[in-house]
Design a protein around this nucleic acid. Sequence first.
DNA 1: CGGCGTCTCCATCTTTTGATGGATGGCGTC
DNA 2: GACGCCATCCATCAAAAGATGGAGACGCCG
Lengths: 212, 212
Amino acid sequence: MVTEMDTITILVVDDHHIVRQGLVALLKTVPGFTVMAEASDGAEAVDLYAKHHPDVTLMDLRLPKLGGVDAIARIREKNPGARIIVLTTFDGDEDIFRALQAGAKGYLLKGMDTDELTEAIRSVYAGKSRIPAVVAEKLAERMSGPALTTRELEVLRLIVGGRSNKEIAGELFISEATVKTHINSLLSKLGVTDRTQAATTALQRGIVHLDS
Amino acid sequence: MVTEMDTITILVVDDHHIVRQGLVALLKTVPGFTVMAEASDGAEAVDLYAKHHPDVTLMDLRLPKLGGVDAIARIREKNPGARIIVLTTFDGDEDIFRALQAGAKGYLLKGMDTDELTEAIRSVYAGKSRIPAVVAEKLAERMSGPALTTRELEVLRLIVGGRSNKEIAGELFISEATVKTHINSLLSKLGVTDRTQAATTALQRGIVHLDS
DNA sequence: CGGCGTCTCCATCTTTTGATGGATGGCGTC
DNA sequence: GACGCCATCCATCAAAAGATGGAGACGCCG
């Protein structure tokens, strides 16, 4: 139960200065919310969490130095009760999934209005978790397929990297035939029929990222 | 020349509520800047520009209804003197290029600090254009290669869409052999060796987008 | 006009890719 | 330990993709 008197302390984590400003400005208008700290990368987020122990943390996933997912994991490692809301411009399902695995309690899309944001913060603060319908849907879709094995993921990453089967075989020290087997199973797991589709859907679903 | 007395009126265009708030909050702290209007999509941006004629427009490229590039083009069609700064989280070179083609005078990345932002606004207001080094570099890189033809672009889009050569041939009413020719030339223009690389670099360079 | 560039189109040959079927070894459960 | 389960590995064969060389159509400029 949250009384009118309580003030919810918040840590904001985002590498974009403008977004941080936006969140602070937005949250300042809501009575009962206090932004107690701001971090611009994952490592700083971990430090600031340890120092301030905010009630709720709003965290972007794409962060320099230490990724959002890892930051969440580290924070919750030492503070299992940490209430963290992921706030991102839709990166793809896989990131959502991993963030929730790592212990995020909510997942919000930038571009939501103030009401949605404040309501989510209050919900999560109250111990509930909060996943918007769009996200839940994507999540369910992702769940449908079986998970890729470690090897399959490695191969997939190399495919997205533009390597040929021969090159993949060389880099993984396996035969080209084996590479094909892995490709075959990952193709069927992803529900596609060739490597190009595998690459694009992997990117779309956020299973791998283009490092630009 | 800008005197101390002048106030620069600004139109902010971004579909993310939070980003708009951030910009407004940020700009409010700078004396001489006035955010006179905010738009959340391209169509609204065009309308509000016509209504207010701001000195400078800050515009995101990824917008609902009417894309940022098109919005820039429409605004400058009627107002050739319009000073527009693109403000985006790096979408890929092609978008930068098209935005500048459409008449954008500056290109900023979200995540820049207040000084860079204000300086860019003042520069553009003064009639100069302002492209950060990172962006200029990418732009030069893009310029290096020859442009894809209309047909090649169509084929490329279908490749990214996961179509086979046979399917592409069917959709474009040409023979499969012809498809291969187009692919061959676009491969060399993109500087890659197969369709998967073509797909990923096309996405990376923002030549095509995954519509998710 | 004549030549030049370029976009479009097509056929043949080689390489790569993907489909299929099957073998090995680890790991947990009963 | 015996069993199934699954990840990993491999070989063979058909299909798709890519390299190469070349032809006709069109606009542009000297």
